[in-house]
Structure formats: C-alpha cells, structure tokens
Nucleic acid binder design. Structure first.
Lengths: 245, 245
DNA sequence: GTTATGCCTTGATCTTTGTCAAACAGAAAA
DNA sequence: TTTTCTGTTTGACAAAGATCAAGGCATAAC
C-alpha cells in the first residue's frame, strides 16, 4: 500500500514512526455507489480519509427527505472531530457517491498519538475551526438567502475553482439540489430561469456562464466578509514539509 | 477581581501559574443592552468569556435581517475557535442582550500557554467538537423542519431545562423568533395556534404547557439520535478538580 | 433496434412563511 | 395621569417553494 496519509492535512505533522502507528489501526476499503459507511446514531469509534471517489454526509428527516450536509472529496478526512466526545455517535449518515476508496482509523489509537504531539493537536484545531466557520456560513446561506442565491453562489464557486466560464456540474443535479436544500424541481426551474435570462446556457450537466456579473449580483457576493476558507495556522516556526512519497 | 476563570470549561485544565498568565492579557468590561463587542469581518485578536448577562451572536443579511446564531450564557466562552486561523476574522457580530459583563483574552498569549499543555488542547478540541455537533443539528433543524417544529422543540427543551410545565421564555419573543429563523409575526401566530389547540396557555412571557405529548409529537422529537449535547472527554486519568475559589 | 430504468423537466396547484400596515399593550418617562 | 416608546398581535395579501402528476430523454439492458 503506497498511500502516504500525510497528504491529508490532519496527518501532515506526523513523523514516520507516528504514521506507522496510525496505519497499524487502519482499514482500507472500497465502496460501491450508494453503499453505507455508517448511519446517524451509530457509535463512532473510527474516522475516515477519502482516497478516491466522493462521500456524501447527510441526515434524514422523519418523512424520508435527506439533507446533504457535505460532500467529502479525496484527500479529506471526516468524522475526526467526534473522537473528543465521551460516547461518540455519528451525527450524520455517510455513503459513497459513486465508487469510492476509503481508509478508516481507530479513534483511541489516534488520541494516544495526539497526546504526544502538540503540533498535530494544533492542526486538528485549525481544521475544526475551519469547519465551524464553514457551518456558520452554511446556516447563513440557509436562512438569509433564497434558493436562487444559493444556486448562483454554488455556480460561481465552481466557476472560480475551474477557472473557466464553461464547466461540468460536480455531481448529479438531484444530489446538488439536496446539497443546496431544495427540491430537484426547484433546482431545475431556477436553471431554466437563468437560461431564459441569458445568464447561462446548459446542456445536460455542462454549464456555460454568459453573464458573470449578473450571476454574481444574484448571488449577493458583494457581502462584506470573505467567503474563501481560511488556511489554518500551524505553530509558527514549526512548518513541516509534506512528504508526498 | 475574585473571578476564577476556571469555571469555564476551556480554562478548567489550567494551573495557578497558567491562569495568572492568561489573566495578564485579559480585559474586563461591562456592556449596555445592544452595545457591540465586535462586528462580522473585524480582525479577531481576542476571545471572550461571559461573566454576566447574555451575548447575542448574529449575522446580518444584505436586506438588514439578522439571524441569531447563538445566545451565549454566563460561564461560556466564544470566538475562541478563531485563534487557530492565520488571519482570524470574526464570522459573526456580537452584542450584549441586556447589560452584560465580559472578560476578553489575547489569542496569542493563550496559544503560547496552549502549546505547553496537551490537556488544555484536548479540552478545546472537545468544546469545538460539541459546537460542530450543535451546528450540524442546527442545519438539520433549519432545513428539515418547519417553523412550528422548531418552536415546539425549543419549548420542550426549555421545559426540560426548568423541569416544570410552567416557565418563562428565556428572552424577548422577537429575539427568540430571530434565533429560530422566523419573523416575529410567525412566532406569534404559532403560539396563538398552539393556544387554540389547548396545547399550551400563554400570558405575556409565561408559558404553561397543557399537553406535553402533543407538543412532543409536533416537535418530531421521536427521532433516533440523542439531542442532548455530549460531554467532551478529557484525557483519561487526568481529571483535574475545578477550583471555584 | 427495442425496451426498460433512472433522472430530469414541466405544468398546475397548495402550503407555508414573509410583507405591509394598523391596532394594541405594557412599561417607562414626562 | 398622560404620553411615548417599544414590542407584540392581527389581518389581508404576496411570494417562494413544495407537492403531485405527467411527460421527456438519456443510457444501459435485452
């Protein structure tokens, strides 16, 4: 297995020996589309690193609707914050979005390593701090913004990520709709509406943005605060080069 | 000043000397109702501990609406997660809800102490983990639930806190409405609706619950996962008695 | 090629919540 | 006591999304 887990920010401060220790308690697994890693309410003894594919984190309401909390991309960890709880329980369910490759780690083992490395602690705190910020932003979006605003903001982010005004949607439309807390029908109607206003053109999952400025104003992105995620800071003077093997 | 900051979970693992160090960088202040501590987008060099009164954390949308993210009660810290960012910026605004007494602390100084104490790090991670959980729950509420559901859940929580079916609302109705992401008018109408259904009786800010079961079913509280916040765990075998002076 | 399957779109309608405006109530100030 | 202020309630109405039902369109299976 020639994967260096230090590609993940969480592990980047570990030395060779610590990596070995962590890996001892790890399991690698492949998951088919829709296969479940864990469910809301399960006991949380392990956390995860996505190697390939995407993982959908979601909650289900009593009437069967699901709200996607996050879609985890390769190189990122999730559920690691839970290890600091006394009786950790997953607050979300997780399943593969398409085929995915995942490594899982034992919480207890990792806590032991943590207790010997302040630097790793600092990194984790940085990561958690970022997530907190992201979630606050999310609440903001959900309450202060309309469905159109949310969709436009998502398109703009995607556009900036790719660096082109022409791009492919990062997931199926139905999935994106759930991520943005709206029904597929609403998603569809908004896209259609943007098309008739010549703000963009769509062809299946391909998007071509025609009027970026209009799109931007619809997304209310003139707001005061920065939207880009902050980089967490490590202990100053202790930056450790990331070994990618 | 005879306040022992170790009443706050965040500081509970500090020894005498560390407390002294932290206090050196602290400022104590009193705030009048509505007075601002900081605004969304301000540089975040300090974090805070509420000694008395309540602090409202909120965001404002472009049209002037405000969404209350949290109401911080005495004994609790806030904005401490930001200190792990490189260029920390408050993601919310904070102001006093009624007269309040606050201590603020310098981030850098606290980070220095942190770098010498794994146990304090663990506590912070525990706190942050709890907050993450709380925010996920919040997103859940906002998207999966209706306004009525949210209000009923809030009433039930309050009722369980107090331990009686008769209690006072913890803040002005308008404030609670904002906290629950609805307009005061909607809040009012829902309460009135619950009254006509004989589920509860209201007299200004006093609530008398008549039919707990019905209220509970309206709040959809039969869900699988526990709603009570988890206690974060400290490093095992290192519990430190909390000195309340 | 034909059929099935899953996803997406479209239209009609309904529900929930927000908006605006006015009335009201209680507490504090004059 | 009267006035004023602020917060709450109420009603009529508008708007955003959800829901339900049907149709379209692709890709994979037969």
């Amino acid at each position: 297995m020639n994967i260096d887990i230090r590609m993940a920010h969480l592990f980047s401060a570990l030395n060779e020996d610590q990596v070995r220790q962590v890996m001892e308690s790890s399991h690698i697994g492949t998951f088919k589309d829709g296969e479940s890693l864990f469910e809301t309410g399960d006991e949380a003894n392990r956390f995860f690193l996505v190697i390939g594919g995407q993982i959908k984190l979601f909650r289900v309401s009593s009437n069967g609707d699901q709200k996607i909390i996050d879609i985890i991309q390769p190189g990122n960890t999730f559920a690691e914050a839970l290890m600091f709880m006394e009786h950790p329980i997953y607050p979300v369910s997780a399943e593969a979005l398409g085929p995915a490759k995942i490594i899982s780690f034992d919480n207890r083992r990792f806590l032991q390593i943590l207790s010997g490395s302040i630097d790793v602690c600092f990194r984790i705190m940085g990561t958690m701090s970022q997530r907190l910020r992201g979630l606050i932003k999310e609440i903001d979006d959900l309450t202060l913004q309309s469905a159109t605003t949310r969709l436009c903001a998502m398109l703009l982010h995607r556009m900036e990520d790719v660096g082109q005004d022409h791009f492919t949607l990062p997931a199926a439309k139905g999935v994106l709709a759930a991520r943005l807390s709206m029904k597929p029908e609403t998603f569809s109607r908004i896209l259609q509406n943007l098309s008739t206003k010549d703000i963009l053109r769509t062809k299946s999952n391909e998007i071509q943005v025609l009027d970026e400025n209009l799109l931007r104003s619809l997304a209310h992105l003139e707001s005061i605060y920065g939207l880009e995620p902050e980089k967490p800071c490590a202990l100053k003077g202790q930056s450790i080069p990331i070994d990618l093997n």
